[in-house]
Design a protein around this nucleic acid. Structure first.
Lengths: 165, 165
DNA sequence: CTAAACCGATTGCGAATTGCAACCGGTTGC
DNA sequence: GCAACCGGTTGCAATTCGCAATCGGTTTAG
């Protein structure tokens, strides 16, 4: 994992960090699937990442300041991975990518429902979800809102599609 | 280039098409650098893609319906690559990625200015730029606007930074 | 008319990355 | 005490990547 530095273009630099088939999926699972431990990311992912790749990507994401790792007080071996502010701000990238994929690629109904809701919700919903992520990952205080959170709404919609078929 | 189909998640499907270090850079050069020929993409890129990789990615992008290729009437060997509507709608993805990279990665001043303007301009500017792309790549009629186009403004800002240092 | 430059690729090859499975020492729950 | 679980690591084969050289045809300059 060397510093390539092919150019100082922001898109290129982003791709040097995230331009592979797995890194953004790990971020996705941390954001939408609330996976925080190595095993959760390893076994509960739709796509079946292998453990060496996961370990390598987590290391890179740590080095890049996109996630942090701390020991789990309830289990000496477990680590808890959290998104940093930098990581949380990848949400708009994921949201746009999800919207594009939803529109043009053969997305399944269950896995597409989140993308649809997030796309319809627009930047306002993204900002609200990012606030929730700040609360869960950074311990930030969030001002009280009425009704279910964005995360809960997305999860409920997903389960509704899964059950109602 | 086999059909992996690891899952029907929109983010995953997008990454299966675009999840590498070069594909989105090619799109970027077509959008912002107005590169339409093989040689232009090969030699005028900041990062120095090699010809076999470029040929391979162009083939994939063609198969995926993100670009099209037609013969250049002025030169029997030249092909003209154009973005499809599907390709043009990758602009928001690139814009978000550029904004994130601009904020968190060591972007150079010259190459970051476009990202800054595009980020400040927001979705409204993106939509205008996408209309210009539709005109240039799809031959769509665009309603007349006063003043310089978004593309021209981005280019002028870039040159201004390059010259004024 | 001819030679050089240019066109979009293709080929060969060594190096790096990926994917898979087995395995590791330590920890926890039963 | 023992099986299951923890976050990884290792070995190895297969694929992909990056680079340079090359290809046959086309256009341009002199």
């Amino acid at each position: 994992m060397t510093d390539a530095q092919r150019s100082g273009c922001p898109i290129n630099l982003s791709l040097e960090v995230l331009g592979d088939k797995w890194s953004l999926l790990i971020i996705r699972d941390m954001m939408f699937g609330n996976r925080r431990h190595f095993r959760e990311l390893l076994t509960k992912s739709e796509e079946g990442i292998s453990s060496n790749i996961l370990a390598d990507r987590l290391k890179t994401l740590l080095e890049q300041g996109i996630i942090t790792r701390e020991d789990d007080p309830t289990h000496k071996q477990k680590g808890i991975y959290s998104l940093t502010e930098q990581g949380i701000e990848l949400l708009p990238v994921l949201a746009q990518m999800a919207a594009w994929g939803y529109k043009y690629l053969p997305v399944t109904e269950e896995l597409g429902i989140r993308a649809r809701l997030l796309s319809e919700g627009g930047p306002k919903m993204w900002a609200e979800f990012m606030d929730e992520l700040r609360e869960n990952h950074l311990g930030a205080k969030r001002r009280r809102r009425s009704g279910p959170s964005v995360g809960e709404r997305l999860q409920a919609a997903y389960e509704s599609v899964v059950n109602g078929r």
